[in-house]
Protein backbone atom coordinates (compact mmCIF):
# COMPACT_ATOMS: atom_id res chain seq x y z
CA UNK A 1 0.00 0.00 0.00
CA UNK A 2 1.40 3.35 -0.98
CA UNK A 3 2.01 6.14 1.45
CA UNK A 4 1.84 9.89 1.09
CA UNK A 5 4.36 11.86 3.07
CA UNK A 6 3.68 15.44 4.04
CA UNK A 7 6.25 17.42 5.92
CA UNK A 8 4.85 19.12 9.01
CA UNK A 9 6.20 22.21 10.77
CA UNK A 10 8.78 21.42 13.37
CA UNK A 11 9.99 18.31 11.64
CA UNK A 12 12.37 17.50 8.85
CA UNK A 13 11.31 15.88 5.63
CA UNK A 14 12.38 12.52 7.03
CA UNK A 15 10.09 12.88 10.04
CA UNK A 16 6.89 14.10 8.49
CA UNK A 17 3.28 13.01 8.69
CA UNK A 18 2.89 9.75 6.82
CA UNK A 19 -0.56 8.97 5.54
CA UNK A 20 -1.54 5.66 4.06
CA UNK A 21 -3.31 6.22 0.77
CA UNK A 22 -6.75 4.72 0.58
CA UNK A 23 -7.30 4.25 4.30
CA UNK A 24 -6.36 7.80 5.28
CA UNK A 25 -4.72 6.47 8.44
CA UNK A 26 -1.70 8.46 9.44
CA UNK A 27 1.19 8.43 11.82
CA UNK A 28 4.15 10.60 12.56
CA UNK A 29 7.41 9.14 11.43
CA UNK A 30 10.19 8.83 13.99
CA UNK A 31 12.54 11.81 14.16
CA UNK A 32 15.95 11.50 12.60
CA UNK A 33 18.40 10.26 15.19
CA UNK A 34 21.05 12.73 14.12
CA UNK A 35 18.93 15.84 14.54
CA UNK A 36 19.68 16.48 18.24
CA UNK A 37 23.48 16.47 18.16
CA UNK A 38 23.42 18.83 15.17
CA UNK A 39 22.53 21.73 17.48
CA UNK A 40 25.44 21.13 19.82
CA UNK A 41 27.86 20.87 16.93
CA UNK A 42 26.57 24.01 15.25
CA UNK A 43 29.50 26.39 14.79
CA UNK A 44 27.30 29.43 14.07
CA UNK A 45 27.65 32.17 16.73
CA UNK A 46 24.87 32.39 19.35
CA UNK A 47 23.39 35.68 18.11
CA UNK A 48 23.07 34.44 14.55
CA UNK A 49 21.63 31.18 15.82
CA UNK A 50 19.01 33.09 17.85
CA UNK A 51 17.98 35.07 14.76
CA UNK A 52 17.77 31.85 12.78
CA UNK A 53 15.63 30.36 15.55
CA UNK A 54 13.26 33.31 15.49
CA UNK A 55 13.01 33.13 11.73
CA UNK A 56 12.20 29.41 12.00
CA UNK A 57 9.52 30.16 14.61
CA UNK A 58 7.90 32.75 12.37
CA UNK A 59 8.13 30.22 9.56
CA UNK A 60 6.05 27.84 11.70
CA UNK A 61 3.47 30.59 12.17
CA UNK A 62 3.21 31.40 8.47
CA UNK A 63 3.16 27.77 7.31
CA UNK A 64 0.28 26.94 9.65
CA UNK A 65 -1.87 29.61 8.04
CA UNK A 66 -1.94 28.20 4.53
CA UNK A 67 0.95 26.07 3.23
CA UNK A 68 0.37 23.52 6.00
CA UNK A 69 -3.14 24.51 6.98
CA UNK A 70 -4.42 21.76 9.31
CA UNK A 71 -7.82 21.55 7.60
CA UNK A 72 -7.06 22.06 3.92
CA UNK A 73 -3.64 20.39 3.80
CA UNK A 74 -3.56 18.07 6.79
CA UNK A 75 -7.26 17.07 6.77
CA UNK A 76 -7.18 17.29 10.57
CA UNK A 77 -9.99 18.42 12.88
CA UNK A 78 -12.73 17.33 10.50
CA UNK A 79 -15.39 16.87 13.22
CA UNK A 80 -15.67 20.55 14.27
CA UNK A 81 -14.94 21.66 10.69
CA UNK A 82 -18.08 19.93 9.49
CA UNK A 83 -20.23 20.36 12.59
CA UNK A 84 -19.97 24.02 13.58
CA UNK A 85 -19.75 25.75 10.20
CA UNK A 86 -23.46 26.27 9.52
CA UNK A 87 -22.95 29.93 10.49
CA UNK A 88 -19.93 32.23 10.84
CA UNK A 89 -20.41 33.23 14.50
CA UNK A 90 -20.14 29.73 15.99
CA UNK A 91 -17.31 28.93 13.56
CA UNK A 92 -15.35 31.98 14.74
CA UNK A 93 -15.98 31.09 18.38
CA UNK A 94 -14.78 27.54 17.79
CA UNK A 95 -11.73 28.81 15.89
CA UNK A 96 -10.71 31.18 18.67
CA UNK A 97 -11.24 28.45 21.28
CA UNK A 98 -8.92 26.17 19.31
CA UNK A 99 -6.32 28.99 19.05
CA UNK A 100 -6.41 29.42 22.85
CA UNK A 101 -6.12 25.69 23.54
CA UNK A 102 -3.37 25.22 20.92
CA UNK A 103 -1.20 28.05 22.26
CA UNK A 104 -1.64 27.07 25.92
CA UNK A 105 -1.15 23.34 25.40
CA UNK A 106 1.86 23.92 23.13
CA UNK A 107 3.43 26.18 25.76
CA UNK A 108 2.79 23.67 28.54
CA UNK A 109 4.08 20.70 26.53
CA UNK A 110 7.14 22.70 25.52
CA UNK A 111 7.80 23.51 29.20
CA UNK A 112 7.69 19.85 30.19
CA UNK A 113 9.37 18.46 27.06
CA UNK A 114 12.64 17.54 28.77
CA UNK A 115 10.81 15.60 31.48
CA UNK A 116 8.56 13.67 29.09
CA UNK A 117 9.23 9.97 28.88
CA UNK A 118 7.91 7.91 25.95
CA UNK A 119 5.31 6.00 28.00
CA UNK A 120 3.90 9.21 29.52
CA UNK A 121 3.87 11.30 26.37
CA UNK A 122 0.30 10.81 25.16
CA UNK A 123 -1.05 10.77 28.74
CA UNK A 124 0.55 14.15 29.47
CA UNK A 125 -0.60 15.63 26.16
CA UNK A 126 -4.19 14.57 26.82
CA UNK A 127 -4.11 15.81 30.41
CA UNK A 128 -2.73 19.18 29.33
CA UNK A 129 -5.21 19.60 26.48
CA UNK A 130 -8.16 18.57 28.67
CA UNK A 131 -7.35 21.26 31.24
CA UNK A 132 -7.25 24.09 28.72
CA UNK A 133 -10.35 22.86 26.90
CA UNK A 134 -12.22 22.82 30.22
CA UNK A 135 -11.07 26.38 30.90
CA UNK A 136 -12.21 27.47 27.41
CA UNK A 137 -15.58 25.76 27.93
CA UNK A 138 -16.08 27.43 31.33
CA UNK A 139 -15.14 30.80 29.84
CA UNK A 140 -17.71 30.46 27.04
CA UNK A 141 -20.41 29.36 29.51
CA UNK A 142 -19.61 32.34 31.74
CA UNK A 143 -19.18 35.11 29.18
CA UNK A 144 -20.80 33.93 25.92
CA UNK A 145 -23.60 31.62 27.14
CA UNK A 146 -25.67 31.85 23.94
CA UNK A 147 -22.73 30.78 21.78
CA UNK A 148 -21.83 28.08 24.28
CA UNK A 149 -25.37 26.70 23.90
CA UNK A 150 -25.09 26.78 20.10
CA UNK A 151 -21.74 24.95 20.09
CA UNK A 152 -23.03 22.38 22.58
CA UNK A 153 -20.70 19.40 22.96
CA UNK A 154 -18.26 20.51 20.27
CA UNK A 155 -16.20 22.69 22.63
CA UNK A 156 -15.52 19.82 25.09
CA UNK A 157 -14.77 17.68 22.03
CA UNK A 158 -11.74 19.88 21.26
CA UNK A 159 -9.99 17.49 23.70
CA UNK A 160 -9.99 14.85 20.98
CA UNK A 161 -9.21 17.28 18.15
CA UNK A 162 -6.23 15.73 16.40
CA UNK A 163 -4.79 19.12 15.36
CA UNK A 164 -3.86 19.85 18.96
CA UNK A 165 -2.30 16.51 19.76
CA UNK A 166 -0.54 16.58 16.38
CA UNK A 167 1.07 19.95 17.13
CA UNK A 168 2.05 18.79 20.63
CA UNK A 169 3.69 15.71 19.15
CA UNK A 170 5.21 17.27 16.06
CA UNK A 171 6.41 20.60 17.42
CA UNK A 172 5.85 21.51 21.08
CA UNK A 173 7.51 18.39 22.50
CA UNK A 174 10.67 19.27 20.55
CA UNK A 175 10.82 23.06 20.31
CA UNK A 176 11.26 25.95 22.71
CA UNK A 177 8.49 28.12 24.16
CA UNK A 178 8.59 30.85 21.50
CA UNK A 179 8.51 28.50 18.54
CA UNK A 180 5.80 26.35 20.16
CA UNK A 181 3.60 29.36 20.88
CA UNK A 182 3.93 30.66 17.32
CA UNK A 183 3.29 27.18 15.95
CA UNK A 184 0.11 26.96 18.03
CA UNK A 185 -0.94 30.42 16.87
CA UNK A 186 -0.27 29.59 13.22
CA UNK A 187 -2.11 26.26 13.24
CA UNK A 188 -4.97 27.73 15.28
CA UNK A 189 -5.39 30.69 12.96
CA UNK A 190 -5.12 28.32 9.96
CA UNK A 191 -7.97 26.27 11.42
CA UNK A 192 -9.95 29.45 12.14
CA UNK A 193 -9.50 30.73 8.57
CA UNK A 194 -10.64 27.37 7.19
CA UNK A 195 -13.81 27.13 9.30
CA UNK A 196 -14.71 30.77 8.63
CA UNK A 197 -14.33 30.25 4.86
CA UNK A 198 -16.51 27.16 5.04
CA UNK A 199 -19.08 28.86 7.27
CA UNK A 200 -19.17 31.93 5.01
CA UNK A 201 -20.18 29.87 1.97
CA UNK A 202 -22.72 27.84 3.95
CA UNK A 203 -24.34 30.76 5.77
CA UNK A 204 -24.62 32.92 2.65
CA UNK A 205 -26.20 30.13 0.59
CA UNK A 206 -28.40 28.80 3.42
CA UNK A 207 -29.62 32.05 4.95
CA UNK A 208 -28.57 34.77 2.51
CA UNK A 209 -26.68 36.37 5.37
CA UNK A 210 -23.14 36.69 6.70
CA UNK A 211 -22.49 37.10 10.40
CA UNK A 212 -26.24 37.38 10.80
CA UNK A 213 -26.44 40.39 8.44
CA UNK A 214 -28.50 40.00 5.27
CA UNK A 215 -26.22 40.15 2.20
CA UNK A 216 -28.36 38.58 -0.53
CA UNK A 217 -31.57 40.12 -1.91
CA UNK A 218 -34.92 39.03 -0.49
CA UNK A 219 -35.78 37.00 -3.62
CA UNK A 220 -32.94 34.60 -2.81
CA UNK A 221 -34.33 31.14 -2.12
CA UNK A 222 -32.44 29.69 0.86
CA UNK A 223 -30.53 26.48 0.21
CA UNK A 224 -31.61 24.66 3.37
CA UNK A 225 -29.38 21.71 2.47
CA UNK A 226 -26.34 23.90 3.10
CA UNK A 227 -27.25 24.00 6.79
CA UNK A 228 -27.39 20.23 6.97
CA UNK A 229 -24.44 17.82 7.16
CA UNK A 230 -24.70 17.27 3.40
CA UNK A 231 -23.99 20.98 2.88
CA UNK A 232 -20.90 20.75 5.09
CA UNK A 233 -19.51 17.74 3.19
CA UNK A 234 -20.35 19.26 -0.18
CA UNK A 235 -18.70 22.61 0.62
CA UNK A 236 -15.59 21.04 2.14
CA UNK A 237 -15.24 18.68 -0.83
CA UNK A 238 -15.66 21.54 -3.27
CA UNK A 239 -13.04 23.64 -1.46
CA UNK A 240 -10.55 20.76 -1.25
CA UNK A 241 -11.02 19.99 -4.95
CA UNK A 242 -10.44 23.66 -5.80
CA UNK A 243 -7.24 23.77 -3.73
CA UNK A 244 -5.93 20.55 -5.24
CA UNK A 245 -6.75 21.80 -8.77
CA UNK A 246 -5.04 25.14 -8.06
CA UNK A 247 -1.91 23.49 -6.67
CA UNK A 248 -1.59 21.01 -9.52
CA UNK A 249 -2.01 23.86 -12.00
CA UNK A 250 0.73 25.78 -10.20
CA UNK A 251 3.01 22.75 -10.24
CA UNK A 252 2.35 22.15 -13.93
CA UNK A 253 3.20 25.76 -14.77
CA UNK A 254 6.38 25.58 -12.70
CA UNK A 255 7.40 22.37 -14.45
CA UNK A 256 6.67 23.89 -17.87
CA UNK A 257 8.72 27.01 -17.16
CA UNK A 258 11.61 24.91 -15.84
Amino acid sequence: MSTVSRSMPGRGADAGFVQTAGTGEGRFAEPAAASAPEVAADPVPAAVSAIAGQSEAFGLLIRGLWAENPVFRGLLGMCPTLAVTAAVQPALTMGLSVVFVLICSNLMVSLMRNALTPHLRILMFTLTIAIFVTIADLFLRAYVPDMSAVLGPYVPLIIVNCIIIARAEACASKKGLFASALDGLGSGLGFTIAVILLATIREILADGSWFGVRVLPSWWVPWTAMKLPVGAFFTLGFMLATIIWWNSRKRARAAASA
Binding site: L123, M124, L127, I131, L138, F139
Partner: peptide
Protein backbone atom coordinates in the same frame (compact mmCIF):
# COMPACT_ATOMS: atom_id res chain seq x y z
CA UNK B 1 6.42 12.47 39.38
CA UNK B 2 5.48 14.47 36.29
CA UNK B 3 1.95 13.06 36.21
CA UNK B 4 1.50 13.62 39.97
CA UNK B 5 2.87 17.17 39.89
CA UNK B 6 0.86 18.07 36.78
CA UNK B 7 -2.33 16.62 38.22
CA UNK B 8 -1.95 18.69 41.38
CA UNK B 9 -1.04 21.84 39.45
CA UNK B 10 -3.77 21.44 36.84
CA UNK B 11 -6.29 20.50 39.52
CA UNK B 12 -5.56 23.70 41.43
CA UNK B 13 -5.78 25.74 38.22
CA UNK B 14 -9.11 24.17 37.35
CA UNK B 15 -10.46 24.65 40.89
CA UNK B 16 -9.48 28.32 40.80
CA UNK B 17 -11.07 28.83 37.36
CA UNK B 18 -14.23 27.02 38.38
CA UNK B 19 -14.56 28.98 41.62
CA UNK B 20 -14.03 32.24 39.75
CA UNK B 21 -16.55 31.68 36.95
Amino acid sequence: WLVLASSIGFGLLLAFTYATW
